[in-house]
Design a protein around this nucleic acid. Structure first.
Lengths: 225, 225
DNA sequence: ATATTGACGATACTCAGTTTCGATAGCTTG
DNA sequence: CAAGCTATCGAAACTGAGTATCGTCAATAT
């Protein structure tokens, strides 16, 4: 009769009712009733009403943490790339669920805030990992913060585009493109390690005036101290 | 007798009680009682219990929006820098309040999520502004997302450092440093406008092998298409 | 003096989330 | 087979946030 596990029945009932009546108009009693269980049982499986829509955020977060922990500083870029791919793949693998949830979250402020808070936890994870990776190099804290924010932002940009398009294409290409962009953005600032042993060269338009050249060089020297 | 306006009395009562008993242990009735008004009056001034701690986020957000709207694409960098400075100054000007709130928000998950959601609204504002600024150049959406995330992350990094240190120094220097870092990070990717008219040059260590040179050049060409 | 407006208090209501207790089914162990 | 043991679920009562409604009172206008 009722083969699927209760947690899944509850989640499906919740999404269905949210679609039909709206989020605020649906009570936990309604969800439990449709799933054929009691209100108590709902709160046994989900800590809150919102949790029923984000059932697997915790496990996914743990998978990301595990992937990052399994890496050293040498393979940091690969680890980060892998981790972001895992997250995106998690959405793509359940395209229908992701799309329903996206449409719902977009309309309900409480759910949007919740989603944002979840994303912040991913960003914190990346920041801590990159922070250890950078060690105590100058501006390590700032750079870790910026890299983590950029990685997460790149992922979100790709994911949102895919969701807005109705999940009609494979977003792994755009994701790789975005991640390459992020890596390239930071690489030129991470390159100089021993300034005393480097030649400084810059790129200019053929039409650049001497003033332009001076301005860019000054900018470069100021920003890399 | 009771000169300060009710909204301020309520906010002070809320912070004081949260400090003394903790957030969850304080009811709205307690806050209203200490402020000498009724529970109804509390909800007239603040939409929720959390609102009492973030009274001026909306007005600050509006000020930022106004500053950005007052700018064109030409002066975008100045506008963004100004806007971030306004936000940081808002915290620094009320150092005691900021510090109390910081210690409180750090301990209460509900408040932390709320704070994060507020930050996301700033980021959205910057993203929309930078998006218009970039127009329909290639990767405009991605770049706008990354720049907005980086600007906000830089601000947060500086602010958090200042808060953790107990607000004991002037953070405007570190903020300018962080913003210059962000601008420098993106500048090299924004520079090339007409590739047919440019000379491509790169920077290498004197000890770099030909393989290193090839790898970096390949990276550069792939990432700037 | 009367009407109007706005700020405040009182009250009752809905519902999320917590806690406690009790029932039942399945399983182990003597 | 019988007696526990445990896990799962339901029932019920409770706290507190947030909403809605109505009444009161004071200030100001007419």
């Amino acid at each position: 009769m009722s083969k699927p596990p209760i947690s899944q029945r509850l989640a499906e009932a919740a999404v269905a009712l949210f679609d039909e009546r709206g989020y605020d108009e649906t009570t936990v009693d309604d969800i439990a009733a449709r799933a054929g269980v009691s209100r108590s049982t709902f709160f046994r499986y989900y800590r809150s009403k919102e949790d029923a829509i984000f059932p697997d955020h915790d496990t996914l977060l743990e998978r990301i943490a595990a992937r990052l922990r399994a890496s050293t500083a040498d393979t940091a870029i690969v680890a980060i790339t892998d981790a972001v791919r895992i997250v995106l793949a998690h959405y793509v693998d359940d395209a229908e669920v992701s799309l329903r949830r996206y449409r719902l979250v977009r309309r309900v402020p409480a759910l949007r805030d919740r989603e944002i808070a979840s994303v912040a936890r991913y960003q914190r994870l990346f920041r801590e990992f990159v922070g250890e990776w950078l060690g105590d190099s100058p501006d390590a804290g700032l750079r870790a913060e910026l890299m983590a924010a950029s990685v997460v932002a790149a992922h979100n940009q790709v994911l949102r585009g895919w969701l807005r398009a109705g999940g009609t294409y494979d977003p792994s290409g755009p994701l790789d493109h975005a991640l390459r962009y992020v890596i390239a953005t930071f690489r030129h600032l991470e390159q100089p390690q021993d300034k005393g042993d480097q030649i400084v060269v810059a790129t200019f338009s053929r039409a650049a005036s001497p003033q332009d050249v001076m301005a860019v060089i000054q900018q470069h020297l100021e920003s890399s101290t």
